[in-house]
Write a protein that binds this DNA or RNA. Structure first.
Lengths: 343, 343
DNA sequence: CTGAAAGCGCTTACAG
DNA sequence: CTGAAAGCGCTTACAG
């Protein structure tokens, strides 16, 4: 009663050996059905649970996955990117569905996170969810690779082919967003978001954007891309900068919803009507998107599917099965920020 | 190189016994400083990490906390209450700061979650973060108590004094929200949110609301409380219901930001101006609040502090130290949804 | 200050 | 189908 029951307690009560108890609890067909049921009944009665530390030590795997949120240290705590929060939800679910536990951690707190988890047998593998400058991770990824740690990384495909990345098809997302705008009769575009290799996901969205413009025979000028990171204020600044440049435009494609929302604020401040004068498309479909004013047309990433694929891929990697990078298709969510075609 | 280094490998290289290695790695003053440093250097070189399963098994504690998000099953996945997501962030940080790991799980997935964690030695204690019907947890809490599991629960103070609860001072929050509205000259109020014991947090906010009204000598009628759960659509419905009742009102206090946002949508649909005709205060200060139109005046809960106190309290409980329920003060965040006093 | 030894609670060949 | 035994990698009395 007082201290926890062990398999030996059960063995004693069931009148069998501890080995048989262990087998019965794992439902081994080696054990006589009747004996098995008897043992399981006693275990239940005693509220017995297999000690994870002991079984993990013995089997040398932890049945645990680690999720590392590598956030941009400049970000405010309370402003954790809502998209990643939603990913966290789906990853939690997918992990549990596979019978694994999930250890969650933020990068900044552990300076040597890259060495911590798998080496100490706390987790069998790691999922990296990064937002912030991609280039900063390079070294750590190398380190993980060198240690033969099992890991998958969310985002754009990596240069190093040994790094398994899972991400949404950002290029396709950028393309359909832009095509939507073109279909609505818009002709003068600007892209708001960093498009350098520091933000490979944004860069791919931009490339999809350019591709759509090109296919529509619209002209492309580099000046129409204004860098921004994924915050409301950065989006606001970027739009102000665009406005100050004096370029005329009737459509904005923002690399994230947060950027779009900031941009809309800047436009409104100048008395520019959205969508009448300028149509805006965002990216991510974060919860705020539908409450924005006007409600934001955006590109939705399937976080449910993404979480599942991330977890499945990592598990395959751990089991030594073949895996390959995957691109998850995105979809357009039409709301009001682009208006309709009758302009 | 191939397989993980153990303390025996280090002992071999350092020419000492394995026990000495173990002591040195825990930085025991029993070990000669020179020997200690030598051992630590070798450990570093070998990229050695203490095997958590082995040390946890030996010491019989896991240095891990479990966080259980008990969500309302009726909620959509992608609409995880943003407030809880923010709590998750602060709990993750606080846990790491204490040198513990954090296991995260959603309730629905594990039917016997209440028995799982501590019994299997996966975690030393549990933090319960619930949103949804409080009464549903009663049995499970009893069960946890019966098993002498260490746990803290977020929210209103519990009937059962053995349950350690940590929460924001909802009564005070409801009071200052209402006082703000009264100070602005509003006189006809309605409260949007369930105020039954199924939602003790909302109930406390409502009670603070009533207290403020009473102190201001305003009359209170039960009809002016409309039940709603914390979703945008529920807030919308509640406001429609209020509108349909024909009661006149110039101020709404919503039990959550999501409810407030839904209510504002309903008001606007009827051509009622916010804040000119009706002032609205929300609760939580979720990220969306500042992007709402108009930006929402709301009650901010200090999630940073809340996470720290939750973790600290649980750790004290585990260590057998004295703990008591705590009420964390809230603060008013003034934005535009209440207008100014010049009405 | 250091080492030999026991033991945490399991799982799993091995033998029957 | 079952049991005796080894061993996963640590920590920590105990003895010196």
């Amino acid at each position: 009663m007082s201290s926890k029951a062990t398999s030996i307690d059960i063995a004693y009560r069931a009148g069998v050996s501890q080995s048989t108890v262990s087998r019965a609890l794992r439902n081994s067909p080696l054990v006589n059905l009747e004996t098995r049921q008897k043992i399981q009944a006693i275990a239940k009665e005693l509220n017995y649970k297999v000690d994870k530390n002991a079984s993990n030590l013995r089997t040398q795997n932890s049945h645990t996955l680690a999720l590392l949120l590598c956030e941009d240290p400049t970000n405010d705590d309370s402003l954790i990117n809502p998209f990643f929060l939603s990913m966290l939800g789906s990853i939690t679910r997918a992990t549990a569905q596979q019978g694994y536990d999930l250890l969650v951690s933020f990068q900044q707190l552990s300076s040597d996170w890259h060495a911590d988890y798998e080496d100490s047998n706390k987790a069998d593998g790691i999922i990296l969810l990064g937002y912030g400058d991609y280039m900063d991770y390079e070294q750590k990824l190398e380190h993980l690779l060198a240690q033969q740690t099992h890991f998958v990384i969310w985002g754009a495909e990596h240069n190093n082919k040994s790094v398994l990345s899972i991400g949404c098809d950002n290029r396709q997302g950028g393309k359909i967003a832009t095509e939507h705008l073109i279909g609505l009769g818009r002709r003068e575009f600007a892209f708001l978001g960093d498009a350098s290799s520091h933000s490979p996901e944004f860069r791919d969205r931009y490339q999809g954007h350019l591709q759509a413009l090109e296919q529509a025979g619209l002209n492309i000028t580099a000046a129409r891309q204004i860098a921004a990171i994924s915050t409301e204020s950065s989006g606001y600044e970027a739009a102000r900068q665009l406005l100050a440049s004096g370029l005329s435009f009737d459509a904005l494609f923002a690399a994230s919803d947060l950027i779009a929302i900031g941009a809309i604020r800047a436009l409104k401040e100048q008395g520019i009507a959205v969508p009448e004068q300028v149509a805006v498309v965002g990216y991510d479909d974060i919860p705020v998107a539908s409450f924005a004013n006007p409600p934001l047309t955006t590109i939705k990433q399937n976080t449910q599917l993404a979480g599942e694929i991330l977890v499945d891929s990592l598990l395959k990697l751990i089991r030594g099965q073949a895996v390959s990078p995957q691109l998850i298709p995105t979809s357009l969510v039409v709301r009001s920020s682009c208006g309709s075609a009758n302009l």
